[in-house]
Amino acid sequence: MKKWIVFFAFVLLFNCHNTAQVNSKQQAVINAEPIEVSLQNGKARAYFASGCFWCVEAIYESVKGVEESISGYSGGHTKNPTYAGSNTGRTGHAEAVEIIYDPKIVNFETLVDVYFGSQNVTQVNGQGNDRGSQYRSIIFYQNEVQKQIILKKKEALAKKLGAKIAAEVYPFQKFWIAEDYHQNYERLHPNNSYIRNVSIPRLNRFKAKFPELLKDNH
C-alpha cells in the first residue's frame, strides 16, 4: 500500500510540474509572434537555452565573433524571473544566454551549429545531472528565416542520429538578465567543484569538436 501511495504522489507531482509548462499563459508564449532585436553598434543578438547557463555562457564566449555572452532567463510566462523562482519549474522560464555577436564574423547558422554541437541533444528537460524544466533546451528565433534555419538543422540532426531532438523551438519574446553573481561564473570561479567537474569538461568537449570556431586565445 505504501508503495502505491508513493507512486501516486510521484505521478501527481510530475503532472503538476508539467502543467506549469503547458498552461494557457505558457501556450501564449509559444504561439506568440517573434520579436526581432535590432542591431546595436553593428552587433546582433541571439538567444539559447541548453542546461546550466554557466556552461553555455562559457562555450559561446569561446567562439570567434561572439563579443559577449550574458546569463539570464527566457521562454516563460512570468515577469522578472529570479534564480529561485525559475528553479521551481513554475515560471515557464529556462536558464538561457544572450549572445552578442558580430554578424560579419559569425552568422546565426553557425551559432545554431554551436548550440546543437555542445549538448546532449536527446536529453529532455535537462543536461547531465541538471534536470528540470528550467534546464530544458530551447532555441529562440526572431524571424521566419531563423526559424527555418533551426527547423532544418534540427530535422537533419534527428535523421542523422535516428533519434528525437529534445530542443524546443520558441519565438523570442524577452530575455531577463540573471543576478550579477551568475555572470561570467565559470571564468570567475575556476575552482568551484561544479565548474571543474561539469562546466569545464563540457567546454573542452566543445573545443575538441569545433577547433576552427575558437578565438585565438582559446
Rank of each mutant, 00 (worst) to 15 (best):
T110F: 02
S137A: 13
E68R: 15
F116W: 14
A58T: 02
I200Y: 00
I150T: 07
F7W: 14
N125I: 00
P201A: 01
T82N: 08
T91G: 14
Y60F: 15
S193Q: 05
N204R: 06
Q123N: 07
V106G: 05
G85D: 08
W176A: 10
G72C: 09
K164E: 15
E61D: 14
R90Y: 10
I30M: 12
S69Y: 01
Q26N: 15
S199K: 02
K209L: 03
A49D: 09
E168M: 10
S24N: 11
N120Q: 04
T88C: 12
H189W: 00
Y170L: 09
C16M: 11
K153M: 06
T19P: 02
S74P: 03
S133E: 01
Y135H: 09
M1I: 08
E61A: 01
T91P: 11
A44D: 13
I105F: 02
E57H: 05
Q127M: 01
V6D: 12
A94S: 14
K209D: 01
K104D: 15
E57V: 04
H77R: 06
L13M: 14
E144N: 11
G76R: 08
D216T: 06
Q119R: 12
G92T: 12
H218G: 00
V169P: 07
K215A: 08
Q146L: 02
A84S: 14
N80T: 14
D180V: 06
S133G: 03
F206N: 01
K215C: 11
Q183H: 12
L39N: 07
R136S: 04
D113T: 13
D113L: 07
E186A: 11
V29T: 13
F14S: 12
G89E: 05
